[in-house]
Nucleic acid binder design. Structure first.
Lengths: 172, 172
DNA sequence: ATCCATGCAAACCCTTTGCAGTCCA
DNA sequence: TGGACTGCAAAGGGTTTGCATGGAT
């Protein structure tokens, strides 16, 4: 699960037209846990937030997750931390940009560690792995919506539901 | 709100490469109410479902809506229908493909009348108008994700949050 | 007449809040 | 020490369910 994938397939015939626009890139979602945990805690510290026991435990637990998780997952992963604190901490991390909220097919929220510059996610429906999608390629479309309709685009969200390569190999 | 917009801007320089791939198209979300209501009821009938009073009332109400609506909106729009029936009927319409579920920025569900062939929505954050987005242009990206990662794409959801032209004109 | 569909109310799930006590800075 | 943080438990909202009644075919 530590491989990193750079996507650059089959858009070559477009590149002479948009030489400065890179193609999409994708990589999966796991890095070296302790380092990430330290980075997360440093960020919290820089925001003047307290490094409490429950917060450290929660950060350690979510950094250890290799997949998107629900609030309930966290409640169970760190039973010594109260339910309310789990919710409060997740919200705090989301507001700090350290964790991002994504949504399941049925709309229920999932969370995953946030990686710089990514906007979208491909979520494995079997194992919960999250592939980040960089440069989703819809900016042009959004601009065109503005041009053709007069609407102003404020934001967008793209969720992609997949079976990751591992799960395809495991038989779906 | 009855205008229909066909998008075809600024992708011309791509078309010689994908002559068969149309550009995105967008139109807003309202049609002639009674006709749509009849069509919806016919579809329910064709599925062997009963044409009860509550169902007719709910279909009439939602066809009359010019914007996306919540379940609660429906409860209040048709106070003579029980709360549970509203939820059950919305689910039924979603399962029949007549209504589609979309999601607000915060993830709470909204619903809107479903139009054939559309996959995505631009939702006005001020008035709730829904612009359908046809040919969202991300299919190519999804194929490329498959090629580069070995994942299998099962589905995707794109939500675009906008201020529609009317609301821009009204001062945001 | 037969079931499907409805209404009511309770149950349910997930999340938030109030408040007294705790612990980091 | 003070104020941010926590835990508990209760409240909250949105949605679903059980069950007896009602209504469409």
């Amino acid at each position: 699960l530590h491989r990193r994938l750079l996507y650059s397939a089959s858009m070559a015939d477009h590149e002479h037209e948009h030489p400065t626009q890179p193609t999409e890139s994708v990589h999966d979602h796991h890095q070296d846990g302790p380092e990430v945990a330290t980075a997360v805690l440093n960020t919290l510290d820089a925001q003047g937030l307290r490094m409490t026991g429950p917060r450290k435990a929660l950060v350690a637990a979510l950094v250890d997750k290799r997949a998107a998780f629900t609030a309930e997952d966290m409640v169970q992963a760190v039973p010594e931390v109260g339910r309310a604190t789990v919710f409060r901490t997740i919200k705090l991390l989301v507001d700090s940009g350290l964790v991002c909220r994504l949504s399941q097919v049925d709309g229920r929220p999932l969370y995953s560690l946030s990686h710089q510059g990514h906007h979208h996610h491909a979520l494995c429906q079997r194992c919960g792995a999250v592939l980040d999608i960089y440069r989703c390629g819809i900016d042009t479309m959004l601009e065109n919506i503005e041009l053709s309709t007069g609407a102003r685009v404020l934001g967008h969200r793209l969720e992609v539901f997949v079976l990751c390569a591992n799960c395809v190999a495991a038989g779906g």
